[in-house]
Simulated assay, not measured.
Amino acid sequence: MTIFSATGISASYGRTRILHDVDLPELHDDEVLGLLGPNASGKSTLMRCLTGEKTHHGRIVLDGSDRDEMDVSAWHRRVATMPQTPPNPSVLMPTELMWSTARALDLDFSDRELADRIEDIFNRLGLDEFALSPLHVLSGGKRQLVGLALALLRDPDVLLLDEPTSALDLHWRMVVLDLVRERLTERGGVVIAALHDLDLAARYCDRIVLLEAGQIVASGTPGEVLTPDNLARVYHVETSVSRDEQGQPVVQVIRPIRSGKQVAR
């Protein structure tokens, strides 16, 4: 079983504090946590703290082991990241990028196992027909799918996704998040995803953390977090929140809230 926690996370750029003692809920196997918030809310900085790219204060613990005390290679065998920026256009083909990444990480797969694994991931992401196309001829959305394939390659216990669907249309957004869910069902682990789309977050996340100016405004289930009051405070929009057949919230944005205007509930 995978247990992941991050507590007291604070970070700054120069003298400007970006994150203020952020405590994420403790995550267990098969759980997806969504990080929501407007631009400059601290989502990307928090993701960079979790991945280790950004210096920060606080504790990040995986199965009882503090990340600061873990061997770097051991951490990266268990934690994989899909950055917001897709792989750069180049003459490399997706297949070549997958093989070179696997060998650089010294993944414990035979050539046959690795080939089968790459084929399966490409199949699920609709990348099989682009496997031998240079990255520079692929769209940004396709390269974003290659970025997810690279993160899935190592079969991590913790998957960190920074805006994993930003360059994708609605169909492929759902394909990606369906695959993430399928993967948790098949092998366990936890996922933390920074997202923009409120309805997709409600559909796919078990828990949501709503950020504003580097602090948590609300944390809980989608139904607890995605309320008209919380959305008015953070996004400055008037919303109507209903429930779908599974009881999950469905957000309808009605209008922007002008500064100082009170919204009737």
Rank of each mutant, 00 (worst) to 15 (best):
G220C: 05
T185I: 09
M93R: 15
D30S: 11
P38L: 11
S10F: 04
L160K: 04
R187Y: 02
L97W: 02
T227R: 15
P87S: 00
A202M: 09
A194Q: 08
G220D: 06
P87G: 01
H196Q: 15
G189M: 10
S240W: 13
E224W: 02
I121K: 03
L19E: 10
F4C: 01
P134T: 05
R154A: 15
D106P: 06
H136W: 02
A232P: 10
A193W: 03
S44K: 00
G223H: 04
V263W: 07
W99N: 11
T45H: 03
H20R: 13
L153N: 08
V180M: 11
L195E: 06
I216K: 12
F109Y: 13
H28F: 07
L138P: 13
L177V: 00
D106K: 14
P25Y: 05
A6N: 08
S65A: 09
T95C: 09
S166Q: 01
L211F: 01
L92I: 03
A11E: 08
P164K: 08
G189A: 09
R255I: 05
A201P: 15
V263S: 10
D120G: 06
L170H: 13
R124A: 12
V61L: 06
D197Y: 06
G140D: 12
L92C: 08
P134R: 10
A167V: 11
D244N: 15
H136S: 00
D63Q: 07
S12Q: 14
N230R: 11
L46F: 00
S90N: 06
F122T: 04
R112I: 05
V251Q: 04
D111W: 03
D157M: 08
D178C: 09
L148D: 04
K43W: 07
V22R: 00
S240T: 14
T165C: 12
Q252L: 14
A115D: 13
V237S: 07
L135P: 10
L114R: 04
T45E: 02
G147Q: 10
L159W: 02
G42Q: 09
L19N: 10
V22K: 03
P83E: 07
Q252K: 13
T55V: 15
R207D: 13
V146D: 14
D116F: 02
D66R: 09
L33S: 06
L198E: 07
V263H: 05
S240P: 05
S90Y: 07
L153T: 03
E238D: 13
I9K: 01
R183S: 13
V180T: 12
R59Q: 15
T51H: 11
S90A: 06
R67Q: 12
R48D: 12
V61Y: 07
A264T: 14
D199W: 07
P89N: 03
P89V: 03
T45K: 06
